[in-house]
Amino acid sequence: MDLTGHSTDYIVDASFPEAMRGFVRRGQLRWPGLYVYGEPLAADWRLPEVADDDYAGIVTFSSGQEMEDFWEENGYALDASGQGPYSVFYRLHPLPLSAATVTGVRAGSEEAEAAVEGTALLMSRYYAVSLVTPDDPAADPFSRSVVAEFADSFGSPG
């Protein structure tokens, strides 16, 4: 299958596995018959541990077998209902990450944003994550809602 969708990329902290559990629960609210990894969602789903190689992990999401079949034929695309499959690619980086200046902060309050804006970033380990949706979230309401649900899974204000 070709990667035909739109990638929204993130650097996330060690809360990623638990946030993914929340993201999966949100997906199940969207689609009660949620498929993860091409199969019906397991009741005890947890993010599998990954090795330290490129995008060692992937979690795929669809509404069911019909969307799985659509995906196989059309790739990441919107179906007639305006919805489509999406995936999360991730890689754990056990090495430090730093940035000289943090900008574009959204922290839920002006005070919290002011406290972080312009500061340096230091992380001991992190996940590089790509959320692949059927279309550009700036143009497509379904893809935008998936991106918002992903951010909400981290308790993000937006």
Rank of each mutant, 00 (worst) to 15 (best):
H6A: 08
D13A: 10
A14G: 06
A14C: 06
M20S: 08
G22L: 13
G22F: 08
F23R: 04
R30T: 07
W31C: 09
P32F: 02
Y37V: 00
Y37Q: 14
E39P: 01
L41P: 01
R46D: 13
L47E: 07
E49R: 15
E49Y: 00
V50Q: 14
D52S: 06
D52C: 13
D52L: 13
D54W: 10
D54L: 11
D54M: 11
V59G: 00
G64R: 07
E66Y: 02
N74E: 14
N74T: 04
G75W: 05
Y76A: 13
L78Q: 12
A80C: 04
A80R: 14
G82V: 11
Q83P: 01
G84W: 00
V88N: 00
R91A: 15
H93C: 11
H93F: 03
P94G: 11
P94H: 14
P96D: 08
L97V: 05
V102P: 02
T103A: 05
A107S: 13
A107M: 01
G108F: 10
A112T: 03
A114P: 03
V116S: 02
T119L: 13
A120L: 06
Y126F: 12
L131E: 09
F142W: 08
R144D: 15
A148K: 07
D152Q: 11
S156E: 03
P157Q: 03
P157M: 11
G158V: 05
